[in-house]
Design a protein around this nucleic acid. Structure first.
Lengths: 112, 112
DNA sequence: ATTCTTTATCGTAATATTGCAATATAGAAA
DNA sequence: TTTCTATATTGCAATATTACGATAAAGAAT
């Protein structure tokens, strides 16, 4: 039989979504931004450029990508500059990996 | 003052490392491979190609990248074909996000 | 030895990402 | 208004990623 009944035409929506979210963290600049946001108490984050080895337009691009992936939220409204980590998305990622870990502990360890 | 004392020349090693690991999961094919490996009981995984919408050489490349990031382990030795998720790396990711989540719950929620 | 099966690598094209300089935008301060 | 400050966008150039067909490699089966 040459028919390949199980081969799909595309990945699932879920696979696309989780990959998109995770991909947004797949760059040291964006990891650094998240870690910086986590370390500061205030959400006034105009000084992110000063703590990253990148020019301002590049940082702005990375922020845009993080926002697009919903890893950060916030806006610039007058003098109320504000960027924060989006806890919901981080929690989703945490649950995703916790779930994988949990399933792995139930698995057969007789290989590799 | 024009001096920028806080601007570093590069990201930290830790930021590079976590980004590299996370980046390896930032593609639907590699998410699908991990999810497939999680779903099968045996480690004989030669049929990954059949469940992905990709040609065999492309799957091989994605496997190589996952292996390079230590998200999977395993080898091809004679007829003992074996690929498994590397629990240690998954656990690292799980801890990374759990730690962020934990720190977020302690933070000021008066913004964004 | 030859063939089969499975996985890896090579070559190449198409696309995406990254980075910065230059510029635009917009509210604040003067 | 003009200027200042902070962020975003545009326009490239350099690099990286992704995909697949063709081919190689290596052990298994005959």
């Amino acid at each position: 039989m040459e028919t390949e009944l199980t081969k799909p035409k595309d990945f699932t929506d879920s696979q696309h979504e989780i990959a998109h979210t995770i991909k947004a963290l797949g760059h040291p600049a964006r990891v650094a931004i998240i870690e910086y946001l986590l370390s500061v108490d205030t959400c006034i984050c105009g000084d992110i450029v000063d703590v990253l080895p990148l020019a301002q337009p590049t940082v702005s691009r990375h922020l845009k990508e993080l926002k697009n992936a919903k890893l950060i939220k916030g806006t610039i409204e007058g003098n109320t500059i504000c960027y924060c980590i989006d806890e919901n998305t981080i929690e989703e990622l945490q649950k995703y990996f916790t779930n994988i870990s949990a399933k792995l502990t139930l698995k057969n360890k007789n290989c590799c």
